[in-house]
Amino acid sequence: MKHARLLAIALLFAVPATAQQAPAADHGSKEDAVAVLATIDTMFKALAAKDPAGIIAVTVPEGRATGTSVTDTGEHRLTSSDWAGFAARLAKVPGKPVERNIDPHVHVDGDIAMVWTPYEFTLDGAFSHCGINHFDLIRVQGVWKVQNVTWTQRRTGCPGR
């Protein structure tokens, strides 16, 4: 019995460290990823319709919308607001805003999700800008909601342009 214990201890230390790590956490299902992207699509439809209530419906009140951009003069700008402030500014957007994600990467673990994706933004069908969107989502009572979105904004180096 003593030898069996010693052998078990020796084998434990002989196993590579990577094999001793805890198993990976659940990274969500394909259904989770589809639901996360559907939430973002719903947000984009509300944006295009300039519908503040639609934005509020898919977001968490405590969350933030934060953007970074570089002006034509090279000045770096940072804007940030809560979702109510973001939604209230929709009426001031000229024309019809349409945002389209390009090749989104979705990561889900339990009730949190993150999406990293290049995007393109148009106004009345004309190119406005592009950048990267980073969405943080949480599942609240079984429904995915956008907690935060952070984005870059530029007019050059855009995918497909």
Rank of each mutant, 00 (worst) to 15 (best):
D136Y: 13
V36I: 12
H107E: 04
E120D: 11
D32E: 04
P104H: 10
A38C: 08
A88H: 13
V60R: 04
G110P: 03
S128K: 07
V106Y: 08
T152W: 06
D41N: 14
V98D: 01
G74K: 05
V15C: 06
D51P: 13
N148E: 13
A113Q: 02
H3W: 14
Q153W: 00
P61H: 13
D41R: 12
W151V: 06
L37C: 06
M43G: 04
T122G: 00
A25N: 11
A46L: 04
A48T: 08
I56N: 05
L137I: 08
H105G: 06
A24P: 07
A19E: 12
P61L: 14
D41T: 15
G63I: 03
G157F: 00
R155T: 12
G110N: 03
T117F: 04
D41A: 15
R77M: 14
D124A: 12
A33K: 02
V34D: 01
D111F: 07
V108L: 10
T156L: 01
E62S: 13
S80V: 02
R100F: 02
A4H: 14
G95L: 12
A19S: 13
A19G: 12
S69T: 06
R64S: 09
T39R: 03
R154H: 01
D109S: 14
T79P: 08
G74T: 08
V58H: 02
G125I: 03
D26S: 10
A38I: 11
L78G: 05
V143L: 09
Q20L: 14
T71Y: 07
G160N: 00
F13Q: 08
A33Y: 05
W144F: 05
D32H: 04
T79G: 15
C158P: 05
A46N: 01
Q153L: 10
K145M: 04
R161M: 06
V115P: 11
F13H: 07
P97H: 00
T39F: 05
E62P: 02
P104G: 10
G131R: 02
R139Y: 00
A25T: 10
G74C: 09
V34L: 01
I102G: 06
Q153A: 10
L7A: 15
A35E: 07
Q153S: 15
L78H: 12
D72Q: 09
A87N: 08
H107M: 07
S81N: 11
T79C: 11
P97V: 02
A57Q: 09
D136R: 14
Q147Y: 03
K50P: 00
D124K: 11
A49M: 11
H76V: 15
V36L: 12
S29W: 06
R89M: 13
E120P: 02
R100G: 07
Q153P: 11
Q141R: 12
A22N: 06
T122Q: 00
G110I: 01
R64H: 06
F121C: 00
T66M: 15
N101S: 11
I9K: 10
S29T: 14
G95I: 11
D136N: 13
T39H: 04
G110D: 03
V15W: 01
G63C: 01
G131H: 02
R154E: 05
T122M: 02
F121T: 03
A10L: 14
R64T: 05
D51F: 10
T117M: 00
E75C: 12
G67H: 07
A88Y: 13
L137F: 03
G131F: 00
I138K: 03
